[in-house]
Design a protein around this nucleic acid. Structure first.
Lengths: 106, 106
DNA sequence: TAATTAAGCAACTAATCGGTTGCAAATATA
DNA sequence: TATATTTGCAACCGATTAGTTGCTTAATTA
């Protein structure tokens, strides 16, 4: 079973859950209230998110609070790193073109 | 058919293709040489990447060069934006904790 | 203690995915 | 012109996915 961060954020509902619990931990029921699908469907998404360690649990009585594991989100950011470098350097190239145009105008 | 950037980068082969053509455009055959799977499989991945506009084509005779559309990659970066803000602020909080510890030591 | 509430687990289903093979169209080369 | 090369398209297949319903377990609460 493939289970990595990229596969986890492929599903729009899962991305919505991530956004939802980014700032405060929530229980499955509370999360499910925000969606049309059943609690079980949300629970399944939480399982996927847990398996790839994007989310961790904290039990409080019979309630389980799910919170986002920000460090795992950084993995996506890290993969993006090299590309960011490319588009930044291209922007700099454009910058230089614009600079040259300015100089020519003089 | 769901077809967005996030679904596109969910597949590891597709991510590898993206990395491969990030710096220079390549033909399907040249790309397929880098993988174990058949040319058709790679072609299918290129179709997915094209459909979600992560990749564009340039015909040159009977060859078709595929190049990465960096602007589309920025969409992922943008989605990550708010989270980056959170972990940066948390880092700052940690920073303040460390600062306080330093102060206490004095 | 009995009823209610929160949550996980298992089985099932329709749809989608990643891959294959086979074929057709267009361009290049002998 | 005949042949080889590059590519896309369609049909098919097994595995996975996202969702459902039904059930059990554990913690509250009346």
């Amino acid at each position: 079973m493939r289970r990595d961060v990229f596969q986890a954020i492929a599903d729009p509902t899962r991305r919505a859950i991530i956004v939802l619990i980014a700032l405060q931990a929530m229980t499955p029921n509370a999360i499910a209230d925000h969606f049309d699908s059943t609690r079980q469907a949300v629970s399944k998404h939480l399982r996927v998110l847990t398996e790839c360690e994007l989310v961790t649990q904290t039990q409080k009585g019979r309630e389980i609070y799910y919170q986002l594991e920000l460090n795992k989100m950084k993995e996506i950011d890290q993969w993006l790193g090299p590309f960011r470098k490319i588009w930044e350097s291209r922007f700099n190239q454009l910058d230089q073109v614009l600079l040259k145009m300015k100089t020519k105008k003089k």
